[in-house]
């Protein structure tokens, strides 16, 4: 028996999650679609059905995608919220890799795929309804995922910029996902709190080195500080940092799951 990763066991685990949570999943999807449609219609109604720009929709999508993603990923590994659930979960005959993969797919991958698709569908439905109600309404179906106001459009990104964009986007999900394994009680709050502390410490460190230690006026004789001597290399360094941070957090989550006790 393959004790590391078996596709058949992975499918069984996925099926188990689906069968145990069928009602909850349908409720979440129906609730999301219903509320979104209602929200968009109310939004249009408040503008006397004369809203023509897609930008408010885009802003709403970004808010839903980020806030929803953080909440959804932060509520991964629900089994670890109580001792009884933890026993049941840890005793399921599947490997940590299979449990990790199922949770990652259910809480992150499916969210990333489903939420934009459902948002787009609801946007089309709402647009069609408004078109039927208001004369001259032009449904800009293709413009929803175009972000002209952004300095670099996601579709036009290449190389390091694209890597950085994907890594930062992944961090939105990976940080709360890891927090959900690391903290048993109120994981999302604790994760955000920890993150806030880390950001503050980093800010203070930067302030200390730049202002107090006066590193901002440091001018090396030949090249820039270490290997960062141009905006491009700074971008590469930041990208590497984010990529490694994401990979490290995922690895940490996996090992935490493997070592979990009840």
């Amino acid at each position: 028996m393959n004790n590391t990763f078996s596709l058949s066991r992975f499918v069984l685990l996925f099926r188990q999650s689906w069968l145990h949570n069928t009602r909850l999943i349908w409720l979440a999807i129906t609730g999301y679609c219903g509320l979104l449609l209602l929200l968009l219609l109310l939004f249009q109604a408040s503008q006397n059905f004369e809203l023509r720009s897609v930008e408010p929709y885009q802003a709403l999508f970004v808010v839903i995608f980020i806030a929803g993603g953080v909440i959804c990923a932060g509520s991964s590994f629900t089994a670890f919220r109580s001792k009884e659930k933890t026993y049941a979960y840890l005793m399921v005959p599947a490997s940590p890799a299979e449990k990790f993969a199922v949770e990652l797919i259910l809480r992150v991958v499916l969210f990333v795929v489903l939420v934009p698709v459902l948002f787009y569908l609801i946007y089309l439905i709402e647009g069609s309804l408004v078109k039927a109600l208001a004369e001259g309404y032009d449904l800009k179906a293709s413009e929803l995922f175009e972000f002209p106001s952004l300095p670099v459009h996601p579709a036009g990104m290449k190389g390091t910029w694209l890597t950085l964009f994907i890594s930062l986007l992944s961090s939105i999900f990976i940080i709360p996902f890891t927090g959900s394994v690391a903290f048993a009680k109120s994981p999302l709050i604790k994760t955000l709190f920890t993150l806030a502390i880390l950001i503050i410490i980093n800010g203070l460190l930067i302030y200390f080195f730049a202002e107090i230690a006066n590193f901002k006026n440091y001018e090396p004789a030949e090249k820039g500080l270490l290997f960062i001597d141009s905006p491009e290399s700074a971008l590469t360094a930041v990208t590497w940092f984010v990529v490694l941070m994401d990979a490290g957090l995922l690895a940490g989550a996996y090992f935490k799951l493997k070592e979990k006790e009840a």
């Binding site: 028996m1 004790n3 078996s6 066991r9 069968l19 145990h20 949570n21 069928t22 009602r23 109580s82 001792k83 009884e84 659930k85 026993y87 049941a88 840890l90 005793m91 399921v92 005959p93 599947a94 490997s95 940590p96 299979e98």
Partner: peptide, 25 residues
């Protein structure tokens, strides 16, 4: 906690969790 071990052990704890589904499911 290898699957080959877990598939041969069943633990019924004093306080347990069962999902909100039917016995059949």
């Amino acid at each position: 906690r290898k699957p080959s071990f877990l598939s041969d052990v069943f633990f019924v704890p004093e306080e347990f969790y069962l999902p909100s589904t039917s016995i059949r499911l």
